[in-house]
């Protein structure tokens, strides 16, 4: 494992910690898209099925369990916590997630490394992760009042994707057999989706203004 991969994983972990802190400390999930969170949970459930049949390292196993548990906790809070669920922007968070899930599933059936159930679910999780942030980005454009924790959450997620690309570039040169074009293309698309957000985040930050995204 290289430094970019580790830094990427830690940023990913921090993004989830920030989100859980926001929910638990402020008892509010305002500005957070439940649809994005549910898709992340689905991504982890499909991808980490390999917990049952393959072992990579203790680090991998522990991280997978943390990601599963924390994303399930976030979805639980937003859907079922008596106080938190009242702060959910139900009327604003209207992105149709089947428009993302169905195409990803079809694409995973058509383009994959091996036509087996676990491999197709794994591929599906790669495709879905690439676009799962979209409802969150749309929600942030609609609610012009983005709080700091939400902004930092998305910033950390975007940074995690950027670091993973550096990790792949590093692996491309250091591991001759590492040629994952399927993962690369999805990952590049995913990082590109954050481009706009990054632009406005730093623009507002430089001029000391509150973060807003133009509609």
């Amino acid at each position: 494992m290289n430094i970019f991969r580790l830094a990427g994983d830690m940023t990913h972990l921090m993004s989830i910690v920030v989100l859980l802190l926001k929910i638990r400390a402020t008892k509010s999930c305002r500005g957070i898209s439940l649809r994005t969170q549910e898709m992340y949970l689905l991504v982890f459930l499909c991808r980490y099925l390999d917990l049952f049949y393959s072992f990579v390292s203790l680090y991998n196993t522990v991280m997978k369990l943390i990601f599963l548990a924390s994303s399930a906790a976030i979805v639980y809070y937003m859907r079922y916590d008596r106080v938190v669920k009242q702060t959910y922007d139900r009327r604003q968070d209207t992105f149709r997630y089947l428009f993302l899930i169905v195409p990803c599933l079809i694409l995973a059936l058509l383009i994959n490394h091996a036509f087996t159930l676990t491999e197709i679910l794994w591929t599906f999780s790669i495709y879905l992760e690439a676009v799962a942030i979209l409802p969150q980005l749309v929600l942030m454009q609609r609610t012009q009042n983005i709080d700091n924790l939400t902004g930092n959450y998305v910033l950390l997620l975007g940074t995690y994707r950027g670091l993973y690309i550096l990790n792949w570039i590093f692996r491309f040169f250091t591991e001759p057999h590492y040629r994952q074009w399927l993962v690369w293309i999805s990952g590049l698309l995913q990082t590109a989706l954050y481009g706009d957000f990054f632009y406005y985040y730093f623009k507002c930050w430089k001029s000391n203004k509150k973060l807003t995204l133009p509609a």
């Binding site: 994983d9 393959s54 990579v56 997978k64 490394h113 057999h177 040629r179 993962v183």
Partner: peptide, 10 residues
């Protein structure tokens, strides 16, 4: 082996 390589990431 090509597929196994990517599965070591999270």
């Amino acid at each position: 082996a090509a597929t196994a390589a990517a599965h070591d990431e999270l």
